[in-house]
Amino acid sequence: MASFQEKFIQCFVTEDRYLFFIKGLSNTLIITIMAAIFGILIGFLVAIVKTTHDRTGKLKILNAVCNVYLTVIRGTPTTVQLLIMYYIIMSGSTNKILIAIMTFAINSGAYVAEIVRSGIMSIDNGQFEAGRSLGFNYVQTMWFIIVPQAFKNVLPALVNEFITLLKETSISGYIALNDLTRGGDIVRSITYETFFPLFTVALIYLIIVMVLTHFVGKLERRLRAGDR
């Protein structure tokens, strides 16, 4: 029976195995951050299309496309979406990081869209009318007046979505992508040691999530103080 210390060395020091965790973490962060950026972009576009449609009755076709997108993405498991992206849609590509980013961006975009939509709808219609009556067109009113306020209102919810996204990327191992979770799992399979690799992985996720949660709490308090 190897001692605690020997197990530790076996898991992290021997053959520089700590690199599995470092490399895995870096892949996880790259995927999460890039997917979050593109997800927010997609989400805002979809939200704007949908609220524009609701308000003016225009953009019928785009609105229908958005509805299909939201229904499909929210109605199927993310793992299945990842596998379809890898084996079917992007079967010609070997760039797994790119495939993961695309999958998670498209997935997260659907949830961001709902968040942003509720944010836009929570803005008083008087704001919209004030913008229009000054002479701003629809897009300018959205851009200068509505979206900045909506963004501020939904920022905490967006950070929560980021947290969900971070944890969700742990399914990347399904396409043999070496993210943090798979890094730990590889060390487990090499060393036959379960405790250190898996708890290390869990701890790293937990720390990141706790930092972000702390940040959300601060943000919410700040924003509440800002409005009256």
């Binding site: 008083d124 008087g126 704001q127 009318e129 004030a130 229009r132 009556s133 000054l134 002479g135 701003f136 067109n137 007046i145 900045p148 306020q149 501020k152 409005d227």
Partner: peptide
């Protein structure tokens, strides 16, 4: 309409200032 509205100021009951 946008050009037109630039020539007409409108003041609302609820002020509608931009809070941000």
């Amino acid at each position: 309409v946008n050009l037109l509205r630039q020539k007409m100021g409108m003041v609302f009951q609820q002020f509608n200032l931009f809070p941000h």
